[in-house]
């Protein structure tokens, strides 16, 4: 029964790239590749390697961004997406940590929840969406539910795994120090499981942002996901590109934010930082 929930989402690297590169390269080298791609984009669009309707120039795309910002309600769409993601992420991560901790601490709870959750997990969020939209409509609520689901599983599984991975030696230590159960959980179990929980949180955060784009594209009339699919249908390739870049920037920011949180929470940990 132990292995009833065994799939690991911990395949993502938990280690962070060093803030100061030890190979002697400045951090700014990371900007080289994007600049090269931007140059290629400039060339390809200005020299008409690709038709403008399929690839507008970067300048036109920047103009489109300001047009969307000032004359269309881009900010509202953007905030709508952010709000859905934030809500779904908070519910999903909260529920994942709570139930993951419960299942990790109690075999009985794991046995009760395990098979059901493993079943639900096999049905992708996208497959849940049609039914949930039927029930809850095309408004934000259905998307919040989907994102909750998407964030829940990696957080749940990594929390469970993190708690089960606490070394047995610490249990002896806690008994020698005469810690009570709650003290044991708070002072030993939770911190020991935190690295694993954070892997789930970071992975879940990435999934959440990706999923909102898909969910908005499939249903509803608002949000950045809706905009990108509408731009495709109307051949507004410049707006489409604006949406893509924004999605990328937000995703990047979210990931780095969680990474910073991770660094702060795990400052007691010193791992291999690469060389």
């Amino acid at each position: 029964m132990d292995g009833s929930i065994s799939l690991t989402v911990a395949a993502l690297p938990a280690d962070a790239p060093p803030s100061v590169d030890k190979a002697g390269l400045p951090i700014s080298v990371g900007a080289l590749l994007p600049l090269a791609i931007l140059s290629l984009w400039e060339l390809a669009s200005h020299l008409r390697w690709v038709k403008p309707v399929f690839l507008p120039t970067p300048e036109k795309t920047v103009v489109a961004f300001f047009t969307m910002l000032t004359q269309q309600d881009f900010l509202l769409d953007f905030l709508a997406s952010i709000e859905i993601v934030l809500q779904g992420f908070i519910y999903g991560a909260g529920l994942g940590i709570l139930l993951g901790a419960a299942a990790g601490l109690s075999r009985a709870i794991q046995r009760i929840l395990g098979p059901t959750l493993d079943g639900v997990r096999q049905i992708p969020a996208i497959a849940w969406l049609p039914l949930i939209v039927l029930w809850l409509g095309i408004g934000p609520l259905a998307k919040v539910v989907i994102i909750t689901k998407v964030v829940f599983f990696p957080v749940f599984l990594n929390t469970l795994q993190g708690i089960r991975g606490v070394p047995k030696d610490y249990i002896d230590l806690s008994r020698v120090l005469t810690l009570r159960r709650w003290q044991f959980i708070r002072r030993i179990i939770i911190p020991a499981a935190t690295p694993s929980i954070l892997v789930g949180v970071r992975y879940g955060a990435g999934l959440a942002w990706a999923m909102v784009v898909v969910a908005e594209g499939l249903s509803g009339m608002q949000g950045i996901g809706y905009l990108i699919f509408r731009a495709q249908a109307l051949l507004l390739t410049d707006q489409l590109l604006v949406c893509m870049v924004i999605i990328g920037v937000v995703g990047f920011t979210i990931d780095r934010g969680v990474l910073l949180l991770e660094r702060h929470l795990l400052r007691w940990k010193q791992g291999f930082e690469g060389n």
């Binding site: 030696d169 230590l173 120090l177 005469t178 002072r187 911190p191 007691w268």
Partner: peptide, 18 residues
């Protein structure tokens, strides 16, 4: 068997928790 997330004095203090 010091706990890696506690400082030296927190580790020692854990003995006095109760």
């Amino acid at each position: 068997r010091l706990l890696p997330w506690l400082t030296l004095s927190e580790n020692i203090g854990l003995s006095l928790e109760n």
